[in-house]
Design a protein around this nucleic acid. Sequence first.
RNA 1: GACCCGUUGGUCAAGUGGUCAAGACGUCGCCCUCUCACGGCGGAGUCAGGGGUUCGACUCCCCUACGGGUUACCA
Length: 551
Amino acid sequence: MNYNQLADLLFPDITGNPLEYEEIYQQRKLPAGAKVTRLGPSPTGFIHLGNLYGAFVDERLAHQSGGVFYLRIEDTDEKRQVEGAVETIISSLEFFGVTFDEGAALNGDKGDYGPYYQSRRAEIYQTFVKQMVSLGQAYPCFCTEEELNEIRAAQENLKENPGYYGKWAKHRDLSLEEIQSRIRSGQSFVVRLRSQGTHDCKDEDIKMISVEDGIRGTLTIPENDQDVVLLKANGIPTYHFAHVVDDHLMRTTHVVRGAEWLPSLPIHVELFHTLGWPLPIYCHTAQLMKMEDGNKRKLSKRKDPELSLDYYRSEGYHPKAVREYLLTILNSNYEEWRMENPDAPLESFEFTVEKMSNSGTLFDLDKLNDISKDVLVKLPATELCQFMIDWAKAYKPDLVGCFEGREDYLTKILDLGRSGDKPRKDFIFARQIFEFISYFYDNYFKAEDPYPENVSSSDVKNILSSYLKSYDHEDDQSQWFEKIRNIASDNGYAAKPKDYKKNPELYKGHVGDVSTVIRIALMGRAMSPDIWEIQQILGEEKTIERIKKVL
RNA sequence: GACCCGUUGGUCAAGUGGUCAAGACGUCGCCCUCUCACGGCGGAGUCAGGGGUUCGACUCCCCUACGGGUUACCA
């Protein structure tokens, strides 16, 4: 067999020399230890927390080492393309603080290692495939889907491993003449790797290979023996081939990807070996899991819309909170570090792959919420105010009118009770925050809670009218509360809860009930931050107006 | 089915032969307190099972169980 002839027959239009690409895509000039990572999403238009989780690893590794993080769009599966997906990916990741130095971008590709869309790299892949064919490392396969199905069925019958390999690889040794005639008759073909792996042997004779995984340590896995498809019939490569060619030419040093790729690692190792290229360092991350019917399950695009990044964005989770949460589950020593360095920027934490867990992590909303509270309490109120406005513009336009032009008001509301040694931690995400403060806005103010059962409706009136009578907006907090105590005792309620606890039979209730009545009149709810402070923000006019309305 | 990865409380986890097995979230109780938060204190709760190796195993080896993943001209 003359392989050069075969190569020209299969790729008459490809005239380039693979070595030229080595020239074009030079080794990167980076400081020692700098890592080059990449995110390679397929543009299916959906990106979830799990993707962010992985992207964050890439981003940290590259940026904390002075390296490069780039975006490569893996659009080799034309069936799954979705319009606008790339924009969604870029903007969602950017929102959550993951930014690229290079690669696909909203205003065109950026960088010297492109193109960064795999669909635009067909000629590159074909050049390398042609070389492999000319060296006898790859060959055309004309099998139809039916033939492939037959092979599989036969393998199942014989209980042999499924796949295209060894004696099952029907077209592995087709003659040049046969190939010529098939091509002449217009048959389409794929190009397969001629695997050098051993097969048709006893289990104990299977060769094992060792790969150092950044996260998992030494992996010992059986070598590949599958004649995998390199180039599909449409001339576009499979993931396997595109990954190897791209990550080599783009000079990726660390391939971070989910553990679902572990089983195909032997394929990639053989390809790198066949092409004579050094292996990047693989980092197979554990996946984010979800609990379903009592079992853990990998996050799925289809099944878990509530885990899409857009969901968190629309709920109004602050990007810092999400990043903080992801880092705590990504690196086991992060939480400890954070406790020691409460105010340090997250970037100053030294992220390491060694500290990554390698078993699947369950997404924990409680934990996210808790972290979010701590993150938001540290955010200056003006910043939080702007965040609320931005969120409203995107997801709750009817609120924009309440917020914009009244930033001072909103800022005061958001800052309520947040100063001092023990600041309140009421805020989790924008939607919840607004719910929490909605009574400050007349349009959203409503009576939600009933008055306490131990307070009669005539007492409610009495309490509120004495409150109104004694009300002085200039009172300071203690003067104000002194009056509440007086109203309590005047109406038969204990001025101090302890008195009531000692002799409950002497009173109808205690001062807490009185303030609850006022709280409900003013806020519509039995639970809220400090009444006096709220009144100061609300203003004298509105305070009096709301009390009057109830009377 | 085969192959691969994994298994410490409800969740995230520290731990690399000798610990009363950290810590965080959640949960429960108490304290603080005009409600709610915040904060403080305390409780319950874990090494999947079985064999080895060892003076001694959460830690090392083997088996089993369970969970996850892969098995495409998807990525």
